[in-house]
Design a protein around this nucleic acid. Sequence first.
DNA 1: CCGGAATAGTTGCGTACGCATGTATGTTCA
DNA 2: TGAACATACATGCGTACGCAACTATTCCGG
Lengths: 153, 153
Amino acid sequence: MTTKDVRLANEAWEALYRSMMTIARELKAGDVWEDLLESEYGVLYAMSTAPAGLRLVDLAGDVLISQPGLSRLIGRMEERGLVMREDDPDDGRACRIRLTDKGAGLQRRVGAAHARHVTAEMTCRLDSQQLQQLRDLCRLMLEPTPPQTTARP
Amino acid sequence: MTTKDVRLANEAWEALYRSMMTIARELKAGDVWEDLLESEYGVLYAMSTAPAGLRLVDLAGDVLISQPGLSRLIGRMEERGLVMREDDPDDGRACRIRLTDKGAGLQRRVGAAHARHVTAEMTCRLDSQQLQQLRDLCRLMLEPTPPQTTARP
DNA sequence: CCGGAATAGTTGCGTACGCATGTATGTTCA
DNA sequence: TGAACATACATGCGTACGCAACTATTCCGG
């Protein structure tokens, strides 16, 4: 591993970090969220793709907070009538989360506005070809990496 | 703006978001931080590049928390002996933040370990050419965009 | 100069979060 | 079968955060 490689890897990471944070900040500032936290929208979005309902553990993979945090998050969303908890018929420990009509409607509204906002922020910075390159590179990074972990005890 | 463009922009954003979050989570889990919060390391890093000291407002651009949050963050770091506040000689309202020796040492230690970790996480996912492409694309996104803001009141 | 607007930073208060732990259910294997 | 372990979720508690309001200094037009 040469010094140059280390430098490049760190430059790439810093650029990735800053660009993502910059866009995220812009998006967050947008007037689109209707009293929804970022993680709350994450839940709505994840569930809009899973009409059968999801368990907390399944959601925990998508939403970037801890499991206890997610539990409370769902609790708040339940109080607001956005989701429902129901006992999992197959597993007495689990509960399935499902969108209410209100939650689904909110997801569609916010999701549509958000998508427009994303489009504006991305296309004003990169053209189609660059967007495609960026998407492909980032997807490459998301592929499961072989367990090349650094020396576990 | 075609449907295809909207789709591409949103796919690129989601990939950018997820890849950055995935790496960030890995890095955070690394045993490198010596009781330092992410934002605290951000402060140390920003200040390591500014030996003359920085004002809170200057830091606020780099660190991704609110200005009041930053004020308290600096307070905690001051209590731990990592930074010092001193009155700005040129502006009675401002204070300059400076690294203590302890803070500078910590920054070097954590920074070096973090850089190794970053290198490992990035190079196991992308090769040199891809890293370079990613860096360049992300830097492009960080360039100041012409004030193509969406209808300010 | 002087008064009002702008800027730099601090503080009160409410909230969402993470960690550690608790409770209940499921799984495994002697 | 039943005891030990694993899994799914909830809760107690401490903490860092954002927003709004505050104080202190500087800037600026008359």
